[in-house]
Amino acid sequence: MTQALISRIFYPAFENAPLLRGDDSAVVEDPGPGRLAVTTDSHIVSPLFFPGGDIGRLAVCGTVNDLAMVGARPQWLTAGFILEEGLSLETLQRVAESMKAAAEEAGISIIAGDTKVAERGKADGLFINTSGVGIIPVGREVGGARARPGDVVLVSGTLGDHGIAVLAARGQLQFEADVISDIAPLNGLVEVMFEACPRLGVLRDPTRGGLATALNEIARQSGVGIHLEEPAIPIGQAVTAACELLGLDPLYVANEGKLVAIVPPEQAGAVLEAMRAHPLGRQACRIGEVIAEPGGRVLMRTSIGGTRIVDVLAGEMLPRIC
């Protein structure tokens, strides 16, 4: 059964030499100079298909983006599938084709994989784990501990689209939102940013936990404060409306195709210009700056001129009662 899946679905979709050799491990030729970046992520999403994407696209983009956020050029992915007994072949085919398209978009190869079938009721349709390997070109030093007071905080576009799109698609909340997930591979955008600013030091994709969580992580890693300007933070109207209705804060809603960059002030203009010239960064903007104190904290000047702390999310985001 799994052998048939591999030869009928996965080989044609992910066609590449290391995979098609069919050995126990994929072997890649000399990867060239630079350091290796390695990451892994398991993907569970309900429903499997939603406006703007599906679990396959999510599994490829999530891992590609994790590599890109350390300055790596993503090269190879592996994919492990756990299928619930009874999952239709047509569904699996659609997911595999979506992964193929996302891999092509990102310019990476899926060179190894595994498939297991769990008994009915033991897995929610389909789980996918992807691991990725990328190469960090010589000279790039990227990490969350590299933010310095005076640096500028940039975001590549509107926030909250993925989380709200999935929530609406789940159908439990009896609301419809005209929101499409932003899932996209960000490695192309990252490359043009490095062309504009080779010293780019901090990148992060605000996935689960949203912008607030990503910036809190950076503030703690760097021992700096981050000061945001609420009116500057781009949030689409439908996402704003959905969050108002549901009692959610868009700063904590997940994104899958956005990044935050922290750049030296003298290069912020050039980076922003490069981002806006890229299809995934058209709405990029400056949302705040790094400050010395209070270390480890994110503050925000609100629309009406007050200041508040933007803390990390405790537990899962819960809709409020009234």
Binding site: R301, T302, S303, I304, G305, G306, T307, R308
Partner: peptide, 9 residues
Amino acid sequence: IVRSGLDQL
């Protein structure tokens, strides 16, 4: 009140 920072104003 606290989310908008109104208390400080």
